[in-house]
Design a protein around this nucleic acid. Structure first.
Length: 755
DNA sequence: CCCGCTTACGTTTTT
DNA sequence: CGTAAGCGGG
C-alpha cells in the first residue's frame, strides 16, 4: 500500500490521490479548471508503472500536442527517466507510455495496419487546404454549381458525417431533400478521390481506425491486449468517432480513465458530443467518479465570478470550484466608448501591470472572433509594445511553407499528385494550364499517375517541345533529390532542394512580403534541424508526420520574447495568465449573434465565457463598448448577458462615461425584466453617430504625420532604424531602410517619424 | 504572369 | 468596414 511518503502520491490532494490509486476499472474524473488535472493524470500513470504495469501497456490520448508534450515531460520528471527520449516514444521502444493526440495515435495504428483495409501504408494526410482543393475538384467533376453547393459547405457536411461516423451509404439513407442528395454524392465522390490519391483527411484518421477495429477483430484484440490501461484527456471534447475508437479499445479490460470538464466543452460546433462524458456512468455503471474542485490557479474572487456565470447553465453535474487564494483584486468590468477605446484601454492596462511587474508574457487579450484582433494589433503597434497573435493565418498554411512541404512530399512519394500539381510550376517554370490539361487527359486515358505521365513526357502528343524539356528538367531534379533523400537528413535535403530550384530568388522579390516568405522558409528549416539526429529517411518522414499534425498553440511555449498574447477565447483553453482581459462582451458579439436563438449554442457561449474567465490567476478585466463599428455600421449593443451574473461583491464596474452608472442600472433591469429571454431587437438599436473623439492626441498625431512623408523624405522607425520613403499612397508608405530592408507601413499605425 | 478592380462575405477550429 | 477571392486587361 502506498503511503504519503511515496513521492508519486505525496503532494496530491485527497481526490487527486484517489484518482492516482484507483487503477482497476473505469474512472470518471470531473476536473474543473485549474484543478491539477494533468497532475492527477501524470501521477496516476506513474503509479501504474510503479505497480509493475509496463509503459507500453499504457495509452494516454489528448487533443493537442501541447497537452501530450506536457504530460510526457511531467511523467519523465516524475520517474526521473533521463533516457526515455521522444524518439524512443516514436518507435515504441521507449520507457514512456504511449502518449499522443487522437490523430497521432491513429496515424501510428494505420501506418502499421491499414493494409488490412486494402489501403497503402504510405498514405498522405490532407489538411484543410488540401481538402478544399479536392472538394472543389469533386464538385466540378459532378457538375455541381458552386452556387448550389460551395466546397466549404460540402466539407462541413462531410466533416459532420465523419465525426458522427456516418458513411456515405448510411447518410444517403436519410437524405430526403435534393440538396442533401447532392451533398451525399459529393461525400461519396470525395471519399473516392481521397482513396485514389492515397490520402486521408484528419477525420479519416480516426474513422479508418474505427473501421479497422470493426473489420479486423484480431487487430482490435492485439491493441486491446497491448493497451490495457487507457486514459483520455478533455473527454468532453470527443466526437462520436473518437468515442467509438476508445470504446472499442476499452471493451475488453474496461480500464478506462476519462478526464474532463463538461463546463469547458466549447467544441460542439465541430462535432464534440458532450453526452460522451455526461453519460459515461451509464455506460460504465461500475465507474468510480472523482471530482477535482480545488483550484490552484485563481483567486477566490475570480472563481466566484466564474462560478456565478456558469451556474446559469442547466443540467451540469454539480461542481463548484474553490481556491485557497482568498485575497485579490476585484474583477474589473470596464465600459468604454467604442471598440477603438476598448483596444487603447486594454493596452494601457497591460502596460500598467507590466510596470507593476507582471510581464507581458503573463498577460492576454481574449476575443470572440478573429476579426477583433486587428484593432488590438494596431493599438499594440501604436503603443510600441510587443505582441503575438495566436491563430489567424497558420504558419504551416502559408503558401511558401506548403510549397516546400509539397516538394518533400513529392520526393518521398511521387504518387502524391496533389503535391506534384502544387509544385510543378513553383517556382514558375512555364508549365501552364494548357500543358497540364493535356497531361491530365493523357494520365486519365492511360490510367497512369501524374508522375508516371511526367516520366513519359516524350510520348505525349500535343505538348510543345519547350514544355517537354522543362518537364524533363523538373522530373530530373526530383529524381536527383530522391537519391539525396536516401543519404541526407531532411534539413540538408531541403537546403539542396531550395538551391536546386532557386527558391530564394523566387520568394525574395525585394518586397516586405517576399522577405517574410523567405524568413518563413528559414524558420521551417530551423524546425527541421530537430530531426537531424535521425537516419536520413526517418528524419524526412518523422518531420513530415509531425508537421502534418501540429497546431499554432503548440508553438506558444517555445517563444521566449516578452510579448502580450492576443487570441480567441477558443484557443485559450488549457492556458493560464496572471492578467486576463476579455474584450467585446456585448450582446451580438459575445454571445455571438449567430448563437443567440439556439439554447444549446447559447449554453456553449456561456461555457466559453467560463473558460476565458478561469484562465486568470489574479487580474481579470472584462470590456464592453457602448457602440461598435461592425461591417461598416455603428451599432450599440447591450452589455453581454454574462455580465448580469457577475456577483456585485467581487466586481468593480467602471466607465469612461459619466452617465454610465445610470446606463448600468437600466440594462440590468432590462435583462431581469425579460427573464433572461432573448430580445431580438436589443442589439439592433443604433445610436445616432457620435463624433466626439475623446482621444484627441491620436487624431492630431496622424494628421500631422501625413505631410512629412512625401517620396524621398528621410524617416526613422523604432525597430528598423533610418530609411528613405520610396512612395506614399494614402496612408501607406513604402520605405527602404539603410539596412537594405524594404517595408511598407500604415502611417497611422507605424512608429515612424520624419527626420 | 501579375496587377488592380469588382464582388462577396462576415463565428469559433485541437489535428 | 476590411478582406479575400475571382477575373479581365496589360
Amino acid at each position: 500500500m502506498k503511503t504519503t511518503a511515496d513521492p508519486i502520491i505525496n503532494g496530491l490532494n485527497e481526490p487527486q490521490r484517489e484518482a492516482a490509486l484507483h487503477i482497476q476499472g473505469p474512472v470518471l474524473i470531473l476536473a474543473g479548471a485549474g484543478s491539477g488535472k494533468t497532475r492527477a493524470l501524470t501521477h496516476r500513470i506513474a503509479h501504474l508503472m510503479h505497480e509493475g504495469v509496463q509503459p507500453w501497456q499504457i495509452l494516454a490520448v489528448t487533443f493537442t500536442n501541447r497537452a501530450a508534450t506536457e504530460m510526457k515531460e511531467r511523467i519523465t520528471n516524475l520517474l526521473h527517466i533521463t533516457d526515455g527520449t521522444d524518439m524512443d516514444f516514436k518507435t515504441g521502444q521507449g520507457r514512456l507510455p504511449v502518449m499522443g493526440t487522437f490523430h497521432s495515435v491513429c496515424v501510428r495504428i494505420l501506418r502499421r495496419d491499414i493494409e488490412r483495409l486494402g489501403r497503402d501504408r504510405s498514405f498522405v494526410i490532407y489538411d484543410r487546404d488540401d481538402q478544399e482543393k479536392l472538394m472543389k475538384q469533386v464538385l466540378k467533376d459532378l457538375h455541381i454549381d458552386e452556387k448550389e453547393l460551395k466546397p466549404r459547405a460540402a466539407l462541413s457536411y462531410v466533416g459532420r458525417f465523419k465525426s458522427e461516423a456516418v458513411s456515405p451509404k448510411e447518410a444517403a439513407h436519410d437524405a430526403t431533400t435534393p440538396h442533401m442528395q447532392l451533398v451525399i454524392r459529393a461525400y461519396e465522390r470525395y471519399q473516392g478521390a481521397l482513396k485514389e490519391s492515397n490520402a486521408l483527411d484528419f477525420d479519416d484518421l480516426i474513422l479508418e481506425t474505427v473501421r479497422l477495429f470493426h473489420e479486423c477483430p484480431e487487430v482490435l484484440e492485439r491493441y486491446q491486449e497491448t493497451w490495457r490501461y487507457l486514459h483520455v484527456d478533455e473527454y468532453q471534447d470527443t466526437n462520436h468517432a473518437q468515442y467509438l475508437m476508445i470504446s472499442l479499445l476499452a471493451q475488453k479490460y474496461r480500464n478506462l480513465c476519462v478526464i474532463g470538464d463538461p463546463d469547458q466543452s466549447i467544441y460542439a460546433f465541430r462535432g464534440a458530443d458532450i453526452r460522451n462524458i455526461l453519460q459515461f456512468e451509464k455506460e460504465y455503471p461500475e465507474a468510480l467518479r472523482i471530482k477535482l474542485e480545488q483550484n490552484y490557479r485563481s483567486t477566490q474572487l475570480v472563481l466566484s465570478a466564474a462560478n456565478a456565470v456558469i451556474a446559469a447553465n442547466p443540467s451540469r453535474p454539480e461542481k463548484e470550484m474553490w481556491s485557497d487564494r482568498k485575497e485579490g483584486p476585484q474583477i474589473l468590468v470596464q465600459e468604454v466608448e467604442d471598440e477603438k477605446k476598448e483596444a487603447a484601454d486594454a493596452i494601457k492596462e497591460a502596460e500598467n501591470l507590466r510596470r507593476e511587474g507582471v510581464p507581458f508574457n503573463d498577460q492576454v487579450i481574449l476575443y470572440r472572433t478573429n476579426a477583433q484582433s486587428r484593432l488590438f494589433e494596431e493599438a499594440c503597434m501604436r503603443a510600441g509594445i510587443p505582441y503575438r497573435i495566436v491563430g489567424g493565418v497558420k504558419f504551416y498554411a502559408r503558401k511558401e511553407v506548403k510549397d516546400v512541404l509539397a516538394y518533400l512530399h513529392a520526393i518521398l512519394n511521387p504518387g502524391d499528385t496533389l503535391s506534384l500539381l502544387r509544385i510543378i510550376n513553383v517556382p514558375a517554370r512555364k508549365i501552364g494550364d494548357t500543358t497540364m490539361g493535356h497531361l491530365q487527359a493523357y494520365a486519365a486515358e492511360q490510367k497512369l499517375t501524374l508522375w508516371e505521365t511526367l516520366l513519359r513526357i516524350r510520348e505525349i502528343p500535343n505538348v510543345q517541345e519547350g514544355a517537354k524539356n522543362r518537364i524533363t528538367e523538373f522530373t530530373a531534379v526530383l529524381q536527383r533529390l530522391q537519391e539525396v533523400a536516401q543519404r541526407q537528413v531532411v534539413a540538408a535535403l531541403t537546403t539542396d532542394l531550395l538551391h536546386a530550384v532557386d527558391m530564394e530568388k523566387w520568394l525574395r522579390d525585394e518586397t516586405e512580403e517576399g522577405e517574410n516568405r523567405w524568413q518563413n522558409v528559414q524558420e521551417l528549416l530551423s524546425v527541421m534541424h530537430k530531426y537531424s539526429a535521425l537516419e536520413p529517411m526517418l528524419s524526412l518522414t518523422s518531420f513530415l508526420e509531425e508537421v502534418a499534425l501540429v497546431s499554432e498553440v503548440d508553438k506558444l511555449s517555445t517563444m521566449r520574447d516578452d510579448a502580450l498574447t492576443l487570441m480567441t477565447l477558443h484557443l485559450c483553453k488549457g492556458l493560464e495568465f496572471e492578467h486576463v482581459m476579455i474584450a467585446g462582451c456585448e450582446e451580438g458579439i459575445f454571445p455571438h449573434s449567430n448563437t443567440m436563438y439556439d439554447k444549446e449554442q447559447l449554453e456553449e457561449e456561456r461555457r466559453l465565457m467560463y473558460v476565458g474567465m478561469t484562465r486568470a490567476k489574479t487580474h481579470l478585466r472584462i470590456f464592453f463598448a457602448r457602440s461598435r463599428m461592425l461591417w461598416g455600421n455603428t451599432q450599440a449593443n447591450a452589455p453581454s448577458r454574462f455580465l448580469d451574473d457577475l456577483p456585485d461583491n467581487v466586481t468593480e464596474r467602471r466607465s469612461d462615461d459619466i452617465l454610465s452608472a445610470f446606463a448600468w442600472g437600466a440594462t440590468k433591469a432590462m435583462h431581469t425584466r425579460s427573464g433572461g429571454k432573448i430580445e431580438p431587437f436589443r442589439q439592433k438599436e443604433t445610436l445616432p453617430e457620435v463624433e466626439f473623439n475623446q482621444d484627441l492626441s491620436f487624431t492630431v498625431d496622424t494628421e500631422v504625420n501625413q505631410d512629412a512623408f512625401s517620396d524621398g523624405s528621410r524617416v526613422e522607425h523604432a525597430a528598423f532604424g533610418q530609411g528613405t520613403v520610396l512612395s506614399k499612397r494614402g496612408d501607406v508608405v513604402d520605405v527602404r531602410f539603410d539596412s537594405g530592408v524594404r517595408k511598407s507601413f500604415a502611417l497611422s499605425i507605424a512608429p515612424l517619424r520624419p527626420l
